[in-house]
Amino acid sequence: MTTENPNLPNDPREAAAYWFARVHSGNFTVAERERFKQWRRASPGNEQEYRALDEIWQATNLLPEDALRELLEAPEPPAELRRMARRRWLMGAGSVCTATVAGGVLIYGQMLEAPTHVTRYATAHGEQRTELLPDGSVIEMNVSTELVVRYYTKRRSVELLNGEANFEVTTSPDQPFVVDAGAVDVRVTGTVFSVRREQDHVSVAVQAGSVEVTSGRWWNREKARLTAGMTTQAQLGLPLSVEQADVAALTAWRQGKVVFRDQPLEDMVREMNRYLARPIHLTDSRLKRLRMAGVFTIQDADGFLQALQSNLPIAVVRRPDGGADLSLLR
Rank of each mutant, 00 (worst) to 15 (best):
Pro6Ser: 15
Pro9Asp: 10
Pro9Tyr: 05
Pro9Glu: 11
Pro9Leu: 08
Asn10Tyr: 08
Arg13Glu: 09
Ala15Thr: 02
Trp19Thr: 01
Ala21Gln: 04
Val23Tyr: 02
Gly26Ala: 12
Lys37Ser: 06
Lys37His: 02
Gln38Lys: 15
Gln38Cys: 03
Gln38Ala: 14
Trp39Thr: 03
Ser43Cys: 12
Pro44Val: 14
Tyr50Met: 01
Glu55Arg: 13
Gln58Ile: 15
Leu62Gly: 13
Ala79Tyr: 04
Glu80Gly: 02
Leu81Ala: 14
Arg86Trp: 03
Arg87Lys: 09
Trp89Val: 15
Leu90Arg: 07
Leu90Met: 11
Met91Trp: 06
Gly92Tyr: 04
Ala93Trp: 00
Ala93Tyr: 00
Ala93Gly: 07
Gly103Glu: 11
Gly104Glu: 15
Val105Thr: 13
Gly109Val: 14
Met111Ala: 12
Met111Tyr: 12
Met111Glu: 11
Leu112Tyr: 06
Ala114Arg: 12
Thr116Met: 05
His117Asp: 13
Arg120Lys: 02
His125Met: 00
Leu132Met: 09
Leu133Pro: 06
Ile139Glu: 02
Glu140Thr: 14
Met141Lys: 02
Asn142His: 05
Arg156Ser: 10
Val158Pro: 02
Ala165Ser: 12
Thr170Phe: 04
Thr170Tyr: 03
Ser172Asn: 11
Pro176Asp: 07
Phe177Tyr: 09
Glu198Ser: 06
Ser203Ala: 10
Val204Tyr: 06
Ala205Arg: 00
Ala205Ser: 04
Val206Gln: 00
Val206Glu: 01
Val206Phe: 01
Gln207Asp: 06
Glu212His: 07
Arg217Glu: 11
Trp218Val: 05
Asn220Glu: 12
Arg221His: 09
Thr227Cys: 04
Gly229Pro: 02
Gly229Val: 00
Met230Ala: 06
Met230Pro: 01
Ala234Val: 11
Leu240Gly: 05
Ser241Phe: 04
Val242Thr: 08
Ala245Lys: 00
Ala245Met: 00
Leu250Lys: 01
Thr251Gln: 10
Arg254Val: 15
Gly256Ala: 03
Val258Met: 07
Val258Asn: 08
Arg261Pro: 00
Asp262Arg: 07
Pro264Lys: 02
Glu266Tyr: 01
Met272Gly: 06
Leu276Thr: 05
Ala277Ser: 12
Arg278Cys: 08
Leu282Arg: 03
Leu287Trp: 12
Met292Asp: 14
Val295Gln: 05
Val295Tyr: 00
Phe296Thr: 15
Gln299Tyr: 12
Asp302Leu: 15
Phe304Ala: 12
Phe304Gly: 09
Gln306Gly: 09
Gln306Thr: 14
Ser310Leu: 15
Leu312Gly: 10
Ala315Met: 13
Arg319Ile: 06
Arg319Asp: 13
Asp325Glu: 11
Asp325Val: 08
Leu326Gly: 03
Ser327Gln: 08
Ser327Met: 06
Leu329Glu: 11
